[in-house]
Nucleic acid binder design. Sequence first.
DNA 1: CCCTGATTCGC
DNA 2: GCGAATCAGG
Length: 212
Amino acid sequence: MSWTDERIERLKNMWAKGATASQIADELGGVSRNAVIGKAHRLGLEQRPSPVKPGEEKEAKKPVAAAPKPAPKPEAPKAAEEAPAPIPGAARPNPPRSAPEMQFRSIGPGGFIRQGPGDQQPPIPPAPPRRLVPAKPSPEVADKTGLLDLNDRVCKWPIGHPGEPDFHFCGQNANPGFPYCVEHCGVAYQAQLPRRDRRPPPPLPFGGPRVR
DNA sequence: CCCTGATTCGC
DNA sequence: GCGAATCAGG
């Protein structure tokens, strides 16, 4: 696989949204986690909480008997802590490690993170719903929206299961730019939570996309 | 063990 | 430019 503009764009979006490199790699397919990280760095869009970085200056390398790689050149420890220069539109610098900076965002239904005024992220997240939900009966949609009734303006959230007699689609007004209405967007697009806080374990009834 | 991102370096 | 290998922390 090669890094087409389309794939790079998806990488940027997901990376900006906080998706892990693994998730991005799975999503894009054809690339490894390392490939994603490498590409992200090359694109210059790193600067995200690394589990390793915030620690101490790493320098001491353990001498392994069979060390195929030469010792890296000693790097001068940079103690330059730049004062935060609030330049609108400029890339957000690393938040000071000692001063935890909370991000205040409103969270919509389903943990959907709304964009703040400063956040400009027009590109729409693709990502179809990952899990099958019990298909709650949507609000009154008297007329069942069938497959042929789908267009860009109606919510394509499935109600019921394909093959069932009353299988249809939500059919409400779609959230502009999204394939679903506002309500189902809240279900389809989940905020990326810390693993610990992540809701259910994988509820996949069939195997699952375990690749590794 | 699992996961994470960072970095290196041969290609 | 790419990404496997490696490192290092959780």
